[in-house]
């Protein structure tokens, strides 16, 4: 368990974390990569997928391998903001108000089925995500870094849900789609559980710890030192701006998307062991960065187009930078 000293060490550590988590979360390499990229970029992730695909296991494994705190909130329609952030309680013994901290005072927060909570509770989480601090009774409590929110939403059952507003969606660095594993990977999972190689009870204590919170902060620091050419920044901008006048989109991505592309591109370069960003890095993170920041027009939906198909077309059409 070491804290990386150089950018090369940081890249190696990031890849070893990815490999370790992938041994537990079989068949979800893309999800593991995107969550790690978000962690290195100090961002938050919105996970969308049907239940039972290992979202909680992913967070538990990350928490264990990185030795950072973990908390889970199951969002329900009657969940109050104070249930997330905490509240002041009058202690009759001391005759003083005592602060009871909520589950958001953690480092890795799993917000399960976030769209089941009311807008008021979602807004409370919004402040936590954006400001990385919690205000209770006028007093600010900064959260211990690193802090990351992994929110999940279920695409199947949309009754009784409160869709996330655009402002809150924009706060998520990535929207990651978690899907069923392919048959070979699913067979591998079954065999591993039957062999006892992995447990199906979310017990990850057998895994090696790879670093601690300091190590994660070091990863985040080294990611900011990855060089980014103007041509690559220009490419990220052109990608984002092309969503605003794209046929079939009623809403394009905002400036936060350009920033997110560059930050996530740096993390991607770090994980690939490079100290500079290439256009491929931007392109590889464009889908998770943009898919929740754009909205299909009604015409495009009727024609059977999807956000993914439009993003693919956009990535094919926007010329890659040539120096």
């Amino acid at each position: 368990m070491t804290t990386p000293q150089t950018l090369a060490d940081a890249g190696q550590l990031a890849r070893s974390i990815e490999d370790t988590v992938s041994t537990v979360l079989v068949g979800q390499q893309q999800v593991v990569r995107e969550v790690l990229l978000a962690l290195i970029s100090s961002g938050h992730v919105l996970l969308e997928g049907v239940p039972g695909l290992g979202k909680t296991l992913l967070v538990r494994t990350l928490s264990h391998c990185l030795q950072i705190d973990f908390a889970r909130i199951q969002f329900t329609p009657d969940l109050m903001p104070t249930d997330v952030t905490g509240h002041a309680m009058f202690d009759q013994k001391t005759e003083q108000f005592r602060i009871r901290k909520g589950p958001a005072f953690t480092q890795l927060l799993l917000a399960d089925e976030i769209n089941r909570a009311s807008a008021k509770t979602q807004s409370a989480l919004l402040e936590v995500m954006q400001e990385r601090q919690i205000t209770i009774e006028g007093k600010c409590f900064p959260l211990a870094p690193p802090f990351m929110v992994l929110a999940t939403q279920n695409p199947l059952d949309q009754e009784g849900t409160y869709p996330l507003p655009e402002a809150e969606l924009d706060r998520f660095l990535f929207k990651t789609m978690i899907d069923y594993p392919v048959i070979e990977q699913e067979a591998k999972i079954v065999r591993m559980v039957l062999d006892g190689t992995i447990s199906d009870s979310l017990n990850v204590s057998a895994l090696n710890t790879l670093c601690d919170a300091e190590g994660v902060l070091a990863l985040q620091h080294f990611a900011t030192t990855v060089s980014l050419d103007d041509g690559v920044i220009d490419y990220a901008l052109r990608l984002v701006r092309s969503t605003r006048d794209q046929n079939g989109l009623s809403r394009g991505a905002g400036p936060r998307a350009s920033i997110a592309l560059c930050i996530a591109g740096r993390a991607q370069a770090l994980m690939e062991g490079r100290d500079f960003v290439i256009p491929d890095d931007i392109k590889s993170v464009a889908r998770p960065v943009l898919r929740h920041r754009i909205q299909l027009s009604a015409d495009a939906e009727i024609e059977g187009q999807t956000v993914e198909s439009l993003l693919n077309r956009l990535l094919d059409q926007v010329p890659a930078p040539r120096q």
């Binding site: 290439i278 256009p279 491929d280 392109k283 094919d316």
Partner: peptide, 9 residues
């Protein structure tokens, strides 16, 4: 090769 292809692609 499409216009959006990078050098690696």
């Amino acid at each position: 090769v499409l216009p959006g292809a990078t050098e690696s692609e």
